[in-house]
Design a protein around this nucleic acid. Sequence first.
RNA 1: GGCGAGUUAGCUCAGCUGGUCAGAGCGCAUGAUUCAUAAUCAUGAGGUCCUGAGUUCAAGUCUCAGACUCGCUACCA
Length: 680
Amino acid sequence: MSKTFKRYLVTSALPYANGPVHIGHLAGVYIPSDIYTRYLRMRGCDVISVCGSDEHGVPITLKARKEGVTPQQIVDRYHAIIKKSFEDFGIAFDIYSRTSSPVHSKTASDFFRKLYDEGKFIEKTSEQYYDEEAHTFLADRYIVGTCPKCGNEGAYGDQCEKCGSTLSPDELINPHSAVSGSVPVKRTTKHWYLPLDQYEGFLRKWILEDHKEWKPNVYGQCKSWLDGGLQPRAVSRDLDWGIPVPVEGAEGKVLYVWFDAPIGYISATKELTPDWEKYWKSEDTKMVHFIGKDNIVFHCIVFPSMLKAHGGYILPENVPANEFLNLEGDKISTSRNWAVWLHEYLEEFPGKQDVLRYVLCANAPESKDNDFTWKDFQARNNNELVAILGNFVNRALVLTHKYFDGVVPACGELTDYDRQTLSELACAKEALGSNIENYRFREALKEAMNVARIGNKYLADTEPWKLIKSDPERVKTILNIALQITANLSVAIEPFMPFTAAKIVKMVQAGPFTWDDLGRTDLLPAGHRIGQAELLFEKIEDDVIQRQLDKLEATKQANAAANASQHIEDQKGSVSFDDFQKMDIRVSKILAAEKVAKTKKLLKLTVDTGIDQREIVSGIAEYYKPEELVGKEVLVLVNLAPRELKGILSRGMILMAEDPSGKLRLLRPEESMTPGSIVG
RNA sequence: GGCGAGUUAGCUCAGCUGGUCAGAGCGCAUGAUUCAUAAUCAUGAGGUCCUGAGUUCAAGUCUCAGACUCGCUACCA
């Protein structure tokens, strides 16, 4: 695809405004998009980078309800925090908008209306649960009740987390709304669906044939979806928070958040410039979506189908989705507070935006999930930024001040070695550009750092501190070159570390430079006076890192404690002795165990209850391997009403204990007992 | 269960269409050096390329089977 493009449109996934942003967001989406955009800007390309907060959807309404505030208050709070974090970290969007903006509301509404008018949607009516008190329809997971299978009173409408069974809300005993606590009723409701299946042919050709160059994870994921067959997808929801469906008789319905969010890219562009159509509707615009892997299907399948259905819009040229970043070996989690929040980082490491930008780019999850560790953060800062980059710039400037009083000395005749060194700069430019254009930012960053390495090596090999006594003329040339390398370095690192680049530019008192200046050897003319040298980076000591590790450890312990207390449920209502006596629990011996085909959790156990041998299906496959169960004595509720699971009649229940993390363990007699022994 | 991605030196990763592909950075060891934030430069040690089988004159690189990690999706007391 060697198309030539006149302009670029860069989009970055809209962060969901129900929490601040953390290093995972930065590493996966915003640093890559920022590097890409800064590079294009430096090249003088016509490029705009748009983003904004995604402010609709159910989770925000629930969070608002929980805190007793309005959804608008929630999104106002987080929009402000997120926006500031991006600004603080130099993520230079041309506009950071939000989906609650009036422009967006109109754009999304018009978009829907056009598709509606042209008959691009399917209408379907279905029955769903409705909360009359909260005046809202309830998704299955927002209905709570008693699990018909294990008696857990906190089972959700889609699943009982205690016994693992999947439920439908109809099965729950005593169902009630998680929102208001009232008993939900069934109501029929109508929704609009985008028939993705109709776009399958177009998507196949566009992705599978025309974009084989997409990253393997993205391409593979798309292929998986397409091969699996696409289904119509609902684009509306029963909710009072969002953009109203612009159709008569659609009161109480809003656009599904995933329908309106990507349109947010269009709205943001509209807010940015009256010329927005140039970016969205010209074939010579190159659009690139930066996202995380969880968004692949929406940006590669759903949104393109929407754009196609609407007509007139261009499609993304590439969707360089990244994998996920872990933190110290565990998944980053907002709810478990397992994250390094950007706003907190800046409080603890003021002025060190570029250190984090550097580490996150050098260790970006470009091809697979990666791990962020504070030890690695420290090592990269101390061994790479301080030792290689900061040190080189410092040596060049300090030597210039020392020998030439801060004035750039004239360049004399070049030696072969000088020429060789300078030619390496041109190579670096080449490698840098092609890596960035191919979304290989880790590799590109290495090339940028290589410029500093070239400088360090040059100084070590030419040894101006020795020559100053014997051949001061030669030293002039050497330092001139070292200073040119320094200026080049500021250009090379700008997309990655804009703050540091600006500091270097300020120290050499020149610039601003453009990408074309990279490789040039006359950026600082002889006689030009440079400014004072100041350190670009400082070492990070062990105790600072230890504090961060301690903080995470505290989070871990707080989570464990919260988890434990959370799972200690209230005592259930009392039962009579007679009722208890009705339960027939026996010591039984497991004779055989095998995995139930096509399930993840189920094991089929053959047990000797003393009364008989029978089969019991139990959802413990994730905790026990079949072979380790055979021969074990366990407790079985033998007179539980039989139930058919996956075609197997399960007669009884293996008694299990559940620890705070949800892990199940068998209950076993302390000493060997005869099968059939009564428990009571 | 189906599907996708990943598994290469202590760590983080490159290795395109099979034949100098066994690599880079950091760490480590040794040496050199002192202009520089004890920072630099050179050299070196380190790997059954997840496992097993197969195709081939030749396999990290292709095929099949399996293991593990992550994700999507289904089913499921």
